[in-house]
Structures are given as C-alpha cells and as structure tokens.
Design a protein around this nucleic acid. Sequence first.
DNA 1: GTGTCGGGTTAGCGAGCGCTAACCTACGAG
DNA 2: CTCGTAGGTTAGCGCTCGCTAACCCGACAC
Lengths: 199, 199
Amino acid sequence: MTQTEPTSSQQLGHTPRRQQILDIAADLFARRGFHGVSVAELGAACGISGPALYKHFPSKDAVLAEMLVSISERLLAEGSARAEASADPRSAIEALVEWHIEFALGHRALIVVQDRDWSSLPEDARERVRGLQRAYVDVWADQLKRAHHGLRTERAHAMAHAAFGLLNSTPHSALIPDGQMHDLLRRMALAALLPEADR
Amino acid sequence: MTQTEPTSSQQLGHTPRRQQILDIAADLFARRGFHGVSVAELGAACGISGPALYKHFPSKDAVLAEMLVSISERLLAEGSARAEASADPRSAIEALVEWHIEFALGHRALIVVQDRDWSSLPEDARERVRGLQRAYVDVWADQLKRAHHGLRTERAHAMAHAAFGLLNSTPHSALIPDGQMHDLLRRMALAALLPEADR
DNA sequence: GTGTCGGGTTAGCGAGCGCTAACCTACGAG
DNA sequence: CTCGTAGGTTAGCGCTCGCTAACCCGACAC
C-alpha cells in the first residue's frame, strides 16, 4: 500500500529520483535538522524545484518516515541474521558490533537523523520505528544476557543503548580514517560489553 | 553586558523567572526540538504567555544560547578541576567519568538539547560552545594520552567522543534506577577507556 | 501622592512554511 | 496520429512563526 505498485518488474529502475531525494534529504536533515530544511531547499538540492517533490512523496513527513523506517528495518534484519548465524554469545556480540560499525560508518547521516529527528515522525511511522528499534535492542540484549549470566533484562537493554551511543558517536568525530575508527570502536565496544573473563 | 545588573547582591532572587524559563525550555527543547517549540508554547509552560519572554531574553535563540554556553562552561570548569586534582592519569580518567555521569544523569534534558540543537545556535554562540567543547575534549584526550603510551592525539579525541556517546546514552534509557545506571555506565566507560593492563 | 519601572497583557506585522492548483511538456502505447 | 501519463513548472493559499508595538498595572522611592 505504501509502495506505488508491486508489479513483476519491481520498483527498480523507474525511481532513481526517489532514491536521490532520500539520499540528499538524509544529508540535509543531518546537517540542519528536519525542521531546518524546507521542501524548496530539498527540491533545489535535487536539481528540481519545490513542489515537484510531491510527485514522488505524499508529504515532507513521508520522506522522513520512509528514510527512518527503512534503516530501522535494515539494522534489525541484518543484525538478527548475523546474531543467529553465530555459534556462541561472544561471537554473536562481536558480529553485532561489527555490523553496527559497518552501518554507522557507511551511513553517518542516517545515524544522525535517526536519533535527532525521530520525534518529528508522524504518529504511525514513529510507532513503527519504535517497534523495530525495540526489536533490534532485544537482539542485542538477548546475546548480552547469554554472555553475562544473571544479567537482568533492563540492565541488558541499558547496556545495548550505551553501546549504540558509543558506536553512533562516529559522525561527531571524523578525524581519523574509517579503517582506524572501525578498529577503535570495535575495541572499545567489546571491552565495554564482554565480561572481563572473556577478554 | 548580558547580565541585567552586576550589583553587590548578585543576581540571585531577582530572576527566578529567568531561571524558570531556562529550565522549562530545556525540558521542552529536549522533547520536541528547538524548532518544534514555539515561543507561545514556551511562555505558556512558564505560566506567562508568548511575548512576555522578551522581557527576559532578547530572542528565542538567546535562550538556547545561554543554556548551551552555560552547560559547556560548567562541564569544562568542573572537568578540568577534577582532572588537575588527580594524582595519576588513571584516577583522572576515573574522576572525569564520574563527573560526566553525575552531570548527564542530573541534567538529561540538557544533554539531549546539547547535541541535538547545537546547530540551531546563532553563529557567535555556536563558535563559543564549540570552543568550550573542544577544550573539554582536550582535557579528556590529555589524560588518555598519558594513560596509553603512544596514543596519537586524533585517536585520543575519537576515544573521548566515543566515551561521551556512551555516557550520554543515558537519556534514551531510563529503565533502571539512577544508582544502577551510574554504576553500569562507570564500568562500561572505564573498560572502554583504560588500558587492559590497568583493569 | 505621584513617577518610574519591572514585568505582564493583546493586537498584529512580515516572512517563511507545507502544500495545492493549474498548467506544460516529452514520450511510449494503441 | 492521438492521447494518457510521468514528471516537471509557477502562482498562490492558509497558517504558523518570531518578534514588535502599544498599552496596563502594582510596587516602591521620594
């Protein structure tokens, strides 16, 4: 229903504009905030002007919604896949950390928008994103509880949130090359998350 | 100049309103973002209505500016004081972590506003806040460099930012009592920041 | 008693916003 | 050849915003 048409040819190829808008919007929203970017500006940045956006999205809110819902889905899908594919809790946590760093380094703008402008979402999309995020946190929390015997659920959630904070700090400091940043974040996150006995 | 009058009786007592506005604004800005709160709303939340705010602040921007400048100053002042009062790098880092957690847990709203609406500041205040934040990061980075021999400056900065991300995650997860959260954050931060040999 | 002034009120301005309406083309299908 | 449609244009509506203007009133100084 939210898609235009689930025809056999998929929606690949007939919407480069749509994707371009999402990409550029992510960048602009990250820099100046959702409310700080007008549709005119966004359009201009895409080479078209103003109201032409409404040929691709029903509203400005919808751009934000699609952006945030889709990244929440990707984070959750790949995260839980990697966790399930792991042999033990320790390697599952390593895999989750690895995946989250990959994503955060590769999509800095989305990370910023996600936790800055989450509250600007229309009610239904906000609900959906919250559900997906909660599920993602649960994936982490489950593995943490298996790695630390006796860890309570709420504390595991808090640990996961803290880890996200650490890993998502990446857009705020682009001072060292991605490879080194990746390595640094992995080290710090694993030190913070794994029991001392393991490390 | 920015103060009304530096009389001998200080400015205590003749500005409960001013402080009230700052407190309530922090709360509202944290919840819905600087651009998401109108001056009318802010006034109403203070028991006065709309333009009465301009008897206390020259503009809406100025409210945000005073809020963010003052917390940046407090973070830096107390942080560098505690670091200097420490005997060795390890205990300096412990002291910094302790101070940052105290502050973050005690002023969740300010933490949120600081890194969400920083970019909405007028140019001069943004400059000032950036300077203060950089100095605060430097305090951390210096101690980290003394604790890890051979650590490069840029990497130390990245570590400090990552630690802030971890410690500032606190407003996103209020699910466990402050005491436990404090303890958890300290453990995770120190594990992430201190060399393995130390811990 | 009167004047000043801090701190409040309402009315309303100009600008910018999201969004709609109406129109214009290029183009692929029949 | 025609015509529907995808994807663009400009004009402009209605609303909200930050902020100013003009006024009001109670407390205190003298």
